[in-house]
Simulated assay, not measured.
Amino acid sequence: MTIKPLRKAVFPVGGLGTRFLPATKAMPKEMLPIVDRPLIQYAVDEAIEAGIEQMIFVTGRGKSAIEDHFDIAYELETTMTSRGKSLEILDATRLRPGAVAYVRQQEPMGLGHAVWCARHIVGDEPFAVLLADDFMVGKPGCLKQMVEAYNRVGGNLICAEIVPDDQTHRYGIITPGTRNGALTEVQGLVEKPAAGTAPSNLSVIGRYILQPEVMQVLEGQQKGAGGEIQLTDAMAQMIGDQAFHGVTFEGTRYDCGDKAGFVQANIATALSRSDIAPAIEAFLRTTQR
């Protein structure tokens, strides 16, 4: 079995972020900070750790701040340099020339449609998809764990997480087959099943490694749950034709598309940092009195 190397990653960042209004009226939700780094920066760092060479951002109107974030800020850098300040803190925001591509999703028609918009840049190569809303904390990072599995089994892989039975209607859910450690054979997928009908409580979360053939499926994909073109529905059509596995992430996921999850991610990240943890711990102790 020949396994093509994984070099490209797609970041669907065209969503409106309505759950965080009014904060996201003029700022992309992917630029909301976890302490002092935007969500999208953490996702890009995760991709780089996994060996990704080209970042493909599927954007929409009002998302120029993402492009600016990964560009050179001449005025800022000149001012910092003139004041004797190090530019090291900006290193992660300066990607190599040619390592970034942007494509516009002109209509918010769902995750499947956003991924399909990147088809010409992806070409005939396997690619990863990272949703910045899912803030993944682990060592190694989530995508690197998936790439290690991909290099063994090939095919398509999705990140999997066990969720409570009463929450399965919020996720894409896996019909599981044979399990081998963190790997689970995927026999079926259903997007947001009605309460009580889920085939398992193993959910699909925002990390994927997909073969380019999924673009052909998305080409003719009909609208599904929520009246949108669902990536889960397209992936389900590929089961049986190509190897398909779920990889259970060894780490912690914070749902930063949810306000409570976003706050929890900020607190957990702050507590993990030696520069600010003492102050945060002291504050938390006072609020518990």
Rank of each mutant, 00 (worst) to 15 (best):
G226H: 09
T18K: 15
M109R: 14
A118K: 02
Q167N: 07
K259W: 13
P28F: 01
A277F: 07
P28Q: 02
K85G: 01
I276S: 06
D255A: 15
V100Q: 09
I162A: 00
P38D: 04
G154K: 05
I3A: 03
A9Y: 07
A26Y: 00
D36L: 02
Y171M: 05
R61M: 08
S272G: 11
Y102N: 07
Q41I: 03
F244D: 07
A225V: 00
V186G: 08
G172F: 00
T232S: 08
T168P: 10
I209H: 00
Y42N: 06
E67K: 14
A265Y: 10
M235T: 07
I89F: 02
R152V: 12
S64R: 08
G60D: 12
A50L: 09
P164R: 01
T287A: 09
L39P: 06
A92S: 15
K259R: 15
R96D: 12
E107C: 03
D134I: 00
A23S: 01
I173C: 03
P193I: 12
G172P: 03
R61S: 09
L130S: 11
I66V: 12
V100P: 00
A47R: 03
G240M: 13
V58K: 01
L16P: 00
Y42L: 04
Q187H: 13
T93F: 06
E77P: 01
I280V: 15
A194V: 14
A198E: 08
V58M: 08
Q237N: 11
F70I: 11
L32V: 04
G261L: 08
I56H: 00
P108I: 04
L271M: 14
A50Y: 01
A160P: 03
Q54S: 11
C142N: 03
F11P: 00
V13D: 04
A50V: 07
Q230C: 14
A194M: 13
K192P: 04
E30A: 15
K63I: 01
G220P: 02
